[in-house]
């Protein structure tokens, strides 16, 4: 069995008296989509922040290809976040430059790693806009003229342009209409298959997890209460909390 790309164990983090994470372990293999589900307050967003190096745990380690993410220093983490990693924010405005055109947004990471041919950068940006189903004529438009769904797709294009190996997603469909959500989820699924991406997605939406994820982790009050292959966990939940989550979706 090949080593996981991202491996974390023993993650613990407290905010004062409140335990946000208690002894959490998680692995992500190459080309795998892993969903972390739970209610608000479960610790899932905190876990994503710790895994992506944005927050430091009180205990435990996170390793990317064997290297300790929190020990590597800010410069190395930033480089990682621009090349091998990507991060899709819940609110696209947090992940886009609103005063920069769509083309500039997609091209920025290329320029940051040394691309210096305007024509090529623009062509690459156009091809990515096509991949995320944004009309190429909008390449010079500012993101504020885009709908919420389009902004989110633009954020995804901006993230994927440097062909990262692992993409962190924080509630990427939050705040979008149901039909728009479905389209976005389909896009994420097909792109991750096509590009062989690993994805770590945090969501409270069980249906989205079922659609996208190979494996699912269920969190409650800072702990992982259940994990496993998506179909198994959702069709045959063992933990009472998982059963509750799954049944509430079916009921709705």
């Amino acid at each position: 069995m090949t080593a996981p790309l991202l491996a974390a164990e023993g993650l613990t983090l407290r905010f004062g008296a409140i335990p946000a994470l208690l002894d959490v372990a998680i692995d992500v293999a190459e080309g795998e989509v892993v969903a972390i589900v739970g209610e608000s307050g479960s610790g899932k967003t905190t876990l994503l922040r710790v895994l992506s190096g944005m927050m430091t745990p009180d205990a435990g380690t996170v390793r990317w290809l064997g290297d300790d993410v929190h020990a590597m220093g800010e410069a190395a983490r930033r480089r990682l976040m621009r090349t091998a990693w990507g991060f899709v924010h819940q609110n696209p405005r947090d992940g886009l430059r609103l005063a920069v055109s769509a083309g500039g947004n997609v091209g920025e990471r290329l320029m940051a790693v040394g691309a210096r041919h305007y024509g090529n950068i623009r062509a690459e940006a156009l091809s990515w806009l096509a991949k995320v189903e944004i009309d190429g004529h909008r390449i010079d438009d500012l993101p504020r003229t885009f709908s919420g769904g389009m902004q989110q797709r633009l954020q995804i294009a901006r993230t994927l342009v440097t062909r990262p190996r692992l993409v962190f997603m924080d509630e990427p469909t939050g705040g979008l209409d149901v039909s728009v959500q479905a389209r976005l989820l389909d896009l994420i699924r097909s792109l991750s298959r096509e590009l062989g991406l690993s994805v770590l997605i945090v969501t409270h939406d069980i249906a989205a997890a079922r659609l996208l994820a190979d494996r699912i982790l269920v969190m409650r009050r800072g702990r992982v209460v259940e994990q496993g292959l998506t179909d198994r966990v959702l069709d045959d939940p063992q933990h009472p909390y998982t059963q509750l989550l799954v049944s509430s979706v079916l009921a709705a």
């Binding site: 621009r82 083309g103 500039g104 091209g107 920025e108 320029m111 940051a112 950068i121 623009r122």
Partner: peptide
């Protein structure tokens, strides 16, 4: 990390 400046020129 000077991508931002090149973005300005691109724009």
């Amino acid at each position: 990390d000077y991508g931002l400046m090149h973005v300005r020129l691109y724009e």
